[in-house]
């Protein structure tokens, strides 16, 4: 761990000011950042501790939704009675991730900024365009069983590893961001994370020094909420494939569907074409297959992760079958 300055802020305004300039990072739960610093993979010159700036409440919005403060822990968010009742997919997604201890520390804002679990990103002696732009991508042609099948580039095939953001993507949540001057901007969570392109070092659209203050959920979406996570062991493993689904049925037809996918790409994957296809249709295996066709039209395996393509198809179909009430 490199030596660094430490500044503790008491409010958001102070925090964004303290984080201005090169090399500063915010620290909240530290469940990812501290590991990365110990391994010399992230080397901030300054840490701005935001644990005491407030932002740890879940409140009602005027639009009938909820505003989740950036410092609300994953445990508290998942356990919130309103979220459990009206945003079940979010609660389920959070509880599918990490461990109780980690969820007690991890925060809503921090979790959005969770970094990839690519083996080569985690090794300072390996080439990695995300960690060291221009150094190359060791995962291509290497050990890539856990890597992306959608939206990857020649520069990076890493995935976004989290669960919470996948559910937020299905919920069409928004991220509220405060800049150095105290100005705020609001970004759909679906646009918050980036595809790697030629800048895989940028996981998301945050500018240096910008602070996530809230995540806003729209008014509750009707329908059945499902979060299905497929992984290599029963708990405490990152998703190979995950599906967040909110599906409303009306008279035997799909009235609305909102879907997002984890484990497949550099960001939670959302494809409106799938939702357009499903809306208004009666559920059928053929329809579900078409949905999977759309999802996987451009899927590309890297060798070891080829299995994710049939796995994503099977998982999506099973989720749609469950969501539309047709059970095996």
């Amino acid at each position: 761990m490199r030596p660094f300055d430490y500044h503790r802020s008491e409010n958001a305004g102070d925090a964004v000011k303290a984080a201005a300039g090169d090399g500063a990072l915010f620290i909240a739960g530290g469940t990812n950042l501290l590991d990365l610093m110990k391994l010399d993979l992230m080397t901030p010159s300054r840490l701005v501790d935001i644990n005491r700036i407030g932002l740890n409440d879940v409140t009602q919005t005027e639009e009938g939704g909820l505003s989740i403060g950036a410092l609300v822990t994953n445990s508290d968010c998942a356990a919130d009675a309103r979220i459990r009742k009206d945003y079940e997919v979010l609660s389920r997604a959070i509880l599918a991730g990490a461990s109780g201890q980690l969820r007690n520390k991890a925060t809503t804002g921090g979790n959005l900024c969770q970094r990839t679990r690519c083996y080569y990103f985690y090794d300072p002696d390996m080439a990695c365009n995300k960690r060291k732009p221009g150094s190359g991508c060791s995962a291509i042609g290497g050990a890539n069983r856990i890597h992306a099948i959608l939206g990857a580039s020649d520069e990076c095939i890493a995935t976004y590893p989290g669960d919470m953001a996948v559910a937020m993507s299905a919920l069409d949540a928004e991220v509220v961001i405060e800049g150095e001057g105290g100005e705020t901007r609001t970004i759909p969570v679906r646009d918050f994370h980036r595809l790697p392109g030629d800048r895989p070092d940028q996981d998301n659209i945050l500018e240096p020094g910008e602070l996530i203050t809230h995540v806003t959920l729209p008014a509750p979406a009707k329908g059945r909420h499902i979060y299905r996570k497929v992984r290599d062991r029963a708990s405490y493993a990152f998703a190979l494939v995950s599906v967040a689904a909110i599906v409303e049925m009306d008279a035997g037809r799909i009235a609305s569907a909102s879907l997002a996918f984890g484990g497949l790409a550099h960001k939670p994957w959302h494809d409106p074409a799938i939702e357009d296809l499903l809306t208004g249709e009666a559920p059928s295996e053929a329809l579900f297959d078409k949905a999977a066709d759309i999802l996987l039209a451009d899927a590309k395996g890297q060798g070891q992760n080829d299995f994710k393509i049939p796995l994503a198809r099977r998982t999506l179909k099973a989720v749609l079958r469950e969501a539309t009430g047709e059970r095996s």
Binding site: R117, I146, D232, A234, Y236
Partner: peptide, 10 residues
């Protein structure tokens, strides 16, 4: 995290 041994739920 990535070398998987069984966890309680397994």
């Amino acid at each position: 995290a990535e070398y998987h041994i069984p966890v309680n739920l397994d």
